[in-house]
């Protein structure tokens, strides 16, 4: 009994609580001051892709979201898209984090930073642990809505070696028009990373990196084959600033 009590209290409870404090509670402290944003806050300024989606599929859109204001429709689409993203296990084959190593930045763009995950749609965060397909956290606007509509229906049609499953149930009977789920998942995927400045001069977050590491002869990687998209900031409080993203900077660019 003495042995049992000792094992129960020290190993069972004590060490667990100690580890929780060290591995979970202390790492929470540096980001504890960040505001947790709601879906409505983030949906205040829908990205261009969502507005385009409404124009491309007016009937399906009206059927799915009625005649709600575009912000409310976007908030609803984000929630449904997020639930679909989880329920279909998208997050088991696509990560949502750009690491600071392994050439992730050259492939996908600016490295991940804490602020962008502090919101309702990252409870729990969808970082993922496997990349069969590409990372998605910088992919909003990378492909057109049309591409996504074709892709979700049968991915090998647009990417022949793709091993992504087909999602026929994202479509109306005709197999051409996305239904509510389809519109929502496209809205969600097109939203990912829309808060990051993807303008040509800030490809890969180059300005942030330059500010952090002011090397005289910085060799930038070649920009990806992508037309510069003038994007809305997709719900982050303020517009794109002139300098870096406040990653460890005094400037409170994101309004936190």
């Amino acid at each position: 009994m003495e042995r049992f009590g000792f094992v129960f209290l020290v190993a069972g409870l004590g060490f667990f609580v100690l580890a929780f404090a060290i591995s979970a509670w202390i790492p929470m402290l540096p980001v504890a001051h960040l505001e947790v944003r709601t879906v409505e806050q983030m949906a205040a300024v829908p990205p261009l892709e969502f507005i385009e989606l409404k124009e491309q599929y007016p009937e399906a859109f009206a059927k799915a979201f009625g005649d709600k204001p575009i912000e409310e429709a976007f908030a609803e689409a984000l929630r449904i898209g997020h639930k679909t993203y989880i329920g279909e296990a998208c997050w088991h084959c696509h990560s949502q984090q750009v690491r600071p190593w392994g050439n992730d930045e050259a492939q996908y763009g600016q490295r991940s930073f804490p602020e962008e995950y502090n919101n309702e749609l990252n409870m729990p965060p969808l970082w993922g642990t496997r990349r069969i397909g590409p990372d998605l956290i910088r992919r909003g606007g990378f492909h057109s809505n049309d591409w996504h509509v074709a892709h979700f229906y049968h991915p090998p049609d647009v990417a022949p070696v793709s091993v992504m499953p087909s999602y026929h149930w994202f479509y109306e009977e005709d197999g051409l028009t996305p239904n509510k789920t389809g519109l929502s998942i496209i809205a969600y995927v097109q939203w990912l990373g829309s808060w990051v400045d993807t303008r040509q001069e800030n490809i890969h977050g180059a300005r942030a990196i330059e500010a952090a590491y002011p090397a005289p002869n910085l060799i930038r990687p070649e920009p990806p084959v992508k037309a510069p998209v003038q994007q809305d900031d997709g719900g982050m409080d303020d517009g794109h600033g002139e300098d870096d993203y406040g990653y460890g900077d005094e400037d409170d660019e994101y309004g936190y």
């Binding site: 929470m28 995950y117 990252n122 409870m123 729990p124 965060p125």
Partner: peptide, 17 residues
């Protein structure tokens, strides 16, 4: 905890744990 209490970067370590 990560579902109802903390979000994003605070919840990340909990998932790993």
């Amino acid at each position: 905890l990560p579902q109802y209490i903390v979000a994003g970067n605070q919840a990340g370590p909990l998932l790993g744990l």
